[in-house]
Design a protein around this nucleic acid. Sequence first.
DNA 1: GTTTGCGTTCGAGCGCGCTCGAAGCCCTAG
DNA 2: CTAGGGCTTCGAGCGCGCTCGAACGCAAAC
Lengths: 159, 159
Amino acid sequence: MATDDLMTRALDALGDDAPLSVEAIHSLTDAAHVPEPMTIAEVADLLDISPHTLRYYERAGLVEVARDGYGHRVYDAAAVRRLVFLTRMRLSGMPMRDLQHYVALVDAGTETVPERLDMLLEHRDTIRRRIRELTLSLAATEYKIATYGGSTGPDVQDL
Amino acid sequence: MATDDLMTRALDALGDDAPLSVEAIHSLTDAAHVPEPMTIAEVADLLDISPHTLRYYERAGLVEVARDGYGHRVYDAAAVRRLVFLTRMRLSGMPMRDLQHYVALVDAGTETVPERLDMLLEHRDTIRRRIRELTLSLAATEYKIATYGGSTGPDVQDL
DNA sequence: GTTTGCGTTCGAGCGCGCTCGAAGCCCTAG
DNA sequence: CTAGGGCTTCGAGCGCGCTCGAACGCAAAC
């Protein structure tokens, strides 16, 4: 299971303060300890999204899900793995359209690997830019907090 | 000018790789070297948003802007400062509604400082959570890139 | 046997944050 | 004198990503 490696690296990257949120760990442990075929409710629970959203993703062509005798969705390991990946990409801001393109590439076979790789590299850069931007905003916010909370002098600005 | 401090701290926080983007520096240098009263086009340029958006913000009650003899908007230093702050908060994900509340507090006077501080503290935590989440997604993306680009072995997965 | 509960499909609706178009005013350049 | 450009207001429209409601099916519990 590559999961442990991933988690380790993620933890390393995060560093120190504040323990990793339960949901975050959850969303990385791609179905190692969970029942093999899952119901929509179980998957929704695992991914912390609504069954509505899962159906929406399926309608959008992001994943195919089999049905049981009653017409109920049955998520196998592959579907769950794909959804774990998709939700992580969504969480990091990749648009639906790009994900649709990506899964189309996946379904098109291994000769699309280079293009998939390109997409991932670009997304990696997007995430990095976003983190830098947020870090900047964080500094600005902390500065403002300092002017409000750290001093009662004449330096308190009007905003 | 507190700007230098802020920028220094931001840069420290960012650390090392990749130079700070020009826009980022721009949006931190709250109007020190720019013309005193500015036109909408100048402010739009400074903040890297559209005049449409600036009018929208004004309609939303985020900022009051004077008019000149022709009815054209005239942004004074205070308005520009506020807009710099607002766009930074927007960029870091604070909803319009919260910003509307915040500026209402500002306009209500200094007795609302504690509540403003609360908002900023909460937003700071939101940003931090978001950064952690993105860091996690970044690790996941890099892991995936490694499986695609780093090996040609049998470990390449189907997604 | 009826109620409760979880699932299904389908299409419509919504919240957010812009984004745009129309119609008009004013100034300047050619 | 006219054309162009940049501004104004106002209301409508849009793209995204869900989110929901209606009408229905099946099954286990009471």
